[in-house]
């Protein structure tokens, strides 16, 4: 089955990305005052050396052939791989716009109905009960004020 992280050159790409991050972080550390930059510079060079070594390991590693990718299952595999992050992104967006009170039941309902393939009624009942429980504990019992969203926040 296709997996994004077992695909061609994935390990190498990650290593190169980390090397770039290490370079930027080390270069930035030189702009700080002596006391503030001393340890980040020390760590930064170590970081660069380690990521450089990882790149060398990945370049020398055999098997970057992509033979493990089955083209027919690529799209489905991609969806499974990135499904979690997509759902999480959706929840974050709704929380930011409309707040927890709207986001929680909406996310629970849609997730159960679409991803877990529950019936409309079961999804709705679970979404409502879970929202009541979460609000009961956090807002009721612990008296935390939950985010109302940029639309409703006064």
């Amino acid at each position: 089955m296709f997996t994004l992280f077992r695909s061609r050159y994935a390990d190498l790409v990650i290593a190169v990305l980390l090397f770039i991050i290490a370079g930027v972080a080390t270069w930035t550390a030189y702009s700080y005052s002596r006391a503030s930059g001393l340890f980040p510079i020390f760590t930064g060079w170590l970081f660069l050396a380690l990521t450089g070594l990882e790149i060398a390991v990945q370049v020398r590693k055999p098997g970057h052939s992509g033979a493990d990718i089955e083209s027919g299952s690529t799209r489905r595999g991609m969806l499974v791989e990135l499904g979690g992050p997509i759902w999480l992104g959706f929840l974050l967006l709704v929380v930011y716009i409309a707040g927890f009170l709207v986001a929680i039941p909406l996310f629970l309902f849609l997730f159960l109905y679409l991803a877990a393939e529950r019936t409309v009624i079961r999804s709705a009942v679970f979404a409502i009960l879970a929202t009541v429980l979460i609000y009961g504990v956090f807002a009721g019992l612990l008296e935390y004020r939950l985010f109302a969203g940029v639309l409703f926040d006064t």
Partner: peptide, 30 residues
């Protein structure tokens, strides 16, 4: 797991927000 996942994720985000009552912590958690 399909019932467990949304429940844990929503509680996680509410929990992250509760620390300083700031949406920034929710972004950090995500």
């Amino acid at each position: 797991s399909m019932v467990l996942i949304p429940s844990v994720i929503t509680v996680s985000l509410v929990g992250a927000y509760s620390l300083h009552n700031t949406i920034g912590d929710v972004f950090v958690a995500v």
